[in-house]
Structure formats: structure tokens, C-alpha cells
């Protein structure tokens, strides 16, 4: 009785609220998790600045090589090691390449490696974490042992070992550039999925006990649908943060590999490779080091700030503060 009358009594109790106001309330868009996150993210000034920088760098590397008049592989020995000027804003290399053109072109590869390696890591990590967390038991302990094992692997030496052993085979099968790209992306991804697997497993462990999952079971939803449709979307927040930071990590790893001269071949100017080529000329042409290095630093710093902002925005504990 009380419920029905209570509801009817409410307008009477608050006569000040007109019907128009109520209609206005109803047409206002409901706040979703994502709009809340965006609201929060906007207030993180450095994260916003980071996003702007990343967008600028990404757009520049995608369309820049078409707009900049000097091609990345054009070289002129007569113009070697020129300091930055109007014609060559970032100077030229020892062979007379325009550094600006090479940074634009190389950025494509560095960023693409970062993004794809992250996708490999996220896919592997989510798969392993989801299986371990959902099924538990033997499968869980076996997979977690595997995760611990991978965490104990020294990643750079192993990365060097694998690229050293497989690069010729990959180059022969897919061609030098594509082969190296696949190899680096798969290996970096394959050595960085562990944190994601742990995060996803932890989320699965807590979410699978929730009432709405029980409800889904009770109306006969299949295991696959429960995992993919009901649990997975709820683990997204930590995965998105890990993915963002993973891109930065992968860019650094690829640059390290190229910096050691063991990544992409010399005719592909990734940012790390440019540093490798520059380090012997450092005393005469410091700009050969400064600009590619700044490109890596700026990209990684911006991505890290975006990751930080996303962490704040997507963490429900920090919301509404």
C-alpha cells in the first residue's frame, strides 16, 4: 500500500517542481561510465596536454611524409651534417639525409610497433588472465606459474636472442621489412603480457562471484557469453590503462633494440635506429642525437601522462573527488 501511495504523494508534497522541470530532467542524457571518465580526464591538465601532443605526433607521422618536400630516403652528401636551418629544421645526417623527414617517416614505424606490440600483449594477457580467473583450479595455477616464469625472464637479452636467431628466417619468408616488423611486434608483445594477465585474472576472480553473473548463469547464458559479454567489459578499465602504458613501453623496447643495432635494418629509420646511427657523430652533430631522442621522449612522456590521467579517470575509487 505504502509504495503506491508514496509515489502518488510525491508530486503533491513538492508542488514547487513544475511538470516542465520534470520533463527537462528526463530528456537530459544519462551519465555513463565513459562520460564520467571523460569528465574526470578533462580535469587532468597534463593528461590533456599529453593527448594533444600524441595526436599531433600521430597526425604528423601519418600525413607529414606526404607534405614535407624532402623525402626520407633522399640524401645529398654535399649537405652532410648541416645544423638545423630553415631548409632542414632538424639538420641533416652524416649522409645528408633530412632529419625532419626521417623522424616523420620513422615515427610511423616506431608508433606502429608500439601499438601492435601492445595489441599482442593485451590479447595474450586477456586470454590467459580470463581463462585462469574464470576456470580456476589446476588451469589457474598452471597459467599463473607460466606468468611467474615469464616475469623472471630477462626480457632484453631474450629479445636479442630471439631476433638474432630468427631474423634471417623471417626476412626470407616475409621480406626484410615486414618480417622484422612481425618478429619485433610478436616478441615484444609475447614478453609483455604478464601484467595484463594478472590484472584480468584478478578482476575475473572478483567479478565471477557477483550476483549478476549468478543471474546470467541462472537464465542459462553459456560460458563463452558470460566471459565475453558479462565479465570482460567490466575488466576493461585496468586493461585500458595497462594498454596505454604498454604502448610507451613497447616504443622504448623497440628503440632500445634498434639503438643496439639489432632492430630494423639501417634503411628503415626508426627513432632508435637514428640514434644508433647518430652516436658516432655526436661530437660533431649533436642535433642528430637530440631530435630523434626528443621524439621518443616526448611521445613516451605524453603516453605516460595519458595513462596516468586514464588511471585516475577510470578508477571508481577516485571518481567524484
Amino acid at each position: 500500500m505504502s509504495e503506491a501511495t508514496g509515489r502518488q504523494a510525491q508530486p503533491a508534497a513538492a508542488p514547487a517542481i513544475g511538470v516542465e522541470a520534470l520533463v527537462g530532467l528526463r530528456t537530459k542524457k544519462p551519465r555513463s561510465l565513459w562520460s564520467d571518465a571523460w569528465r574526470q580526464f578533462r580535469h587532468h591538465r597534463l593528461a590533456m596536454a599529453g593527448s594533444v601532443v600524441i595526436v599531433i605526433i600521430a597526425v604528423a607521422t601519418v600525413i607529414g611524409p606526404f607534405l614535407w618536400p624532402i623525402k626520407w630516403n633522399y640524401f645529398d652528401m654535399a649537405q652532410s651534417m648541416l645544423p638545423p636551418s630553415l631548409a632542414h629544421p632538424f639538420g641533416t645526417t652524416d649522409l645528408g639525409h633530412d632529419i625532419f623527414a626521417r623522424i616523420l617517416w620513422g615515427g610511423r614505424i616506431s608508433i606502429a610497433v608500439g601499438v601492435f606490440a601492445m595489441l599482442v600483449a593485451i590479447t595474450l594477457g586477456t586470454l590467459i588472465g580470463a581463462i585462469a580467473g574464470y576456470f580456476g583450479g589446476f588451469l589457474d595455477s598452471a597459467l599463473m606459474r607460466l606468468t611467474d616464469l615469464f616475469i623472471s625472464l630477462p626480457s632484453l637479452p631474450l629479445l636479442l636472442l630471439i631476433t638474432y636467431l630468427f631474423r634471417d628466417r623471417m626476412a626470407a619468408t616475409f621480406g626484410v621489412e615486414i618480417g622484422m616488423f612481425i618478429l619485433i611486434v610478436v616478441v615484444i608483445g609475447g614478453l609483455n603480457w604478464m601484467p595484463v594477465a594478472r590484472l584480468v585474472r584478478a578482476s575475473f576472480l572478483s567479478i565471477k562471484e557477483k550476483e549478476f553473473i549468478e543471474a546470467a548463469h541462472s537464465i542459462g547464458v553459456g560460458t563463452g557469453a558470460i566471459i565475453v559479454k558479462h565479465i570482460l567489459p567490466n575488466t576493461l578499465s585496468p586493461v585500458i590503462v595497462a594498454a596505454t602504458l604498454g604502448v610507451a613501453q613497447a616504443i622504448i623496447t623497440e628503440s632500445s633494440l634498434s639503438f643496439l643495432g639489432l632492430g630494423f635494418p639501417p634503411d628503415i629509420p626508426t627513432w632508435g635506429r637514428m640514434l644508433f646511427d647518430a652516436k658516432d657523430w655526436m661530437s660533431f652533430a649533436p642535433w642528430m642525437v637530440l631530435f630523434p631522442g626528443m621524439a621518443i621522449f616526448l611521445t613516451v612522456l605524453s603516453i605516460n601522462y595519458v595513462g596516468d590521467g586514464l588511471r585516475d579517470a577510470l578508477d571508481p575509487r577516485r571518481m567524484y573527488t
Binding site: 631522442g293 621522449f297 613516451v300 605516460n304 596516468d308
Partner: peptide, 22 residues
């Protein structure tokens, strides 16, 4: 700390050489 964390060691190393050695 944020900047230090985002500076790859190979770049810091080269910067150090540029500044303190060269």
C-alpha cells in the same frame, strides 16, 4: 620522477655524454 621514468636510458646516456664529456 615522471620525466625520469619516460626518459629512455639510451637517450639519457647520450645526453650525458653530450653535456659532460663533449
Amino acid at each position: 620522477a615522471f620525466i625520469g621514468f619516460s626518459l629512455p636510458t639510451f637517450f639519457t646516456g647520450l645526453l650525458f655524454i653530450l653535456l659532460f664529456s663533449v
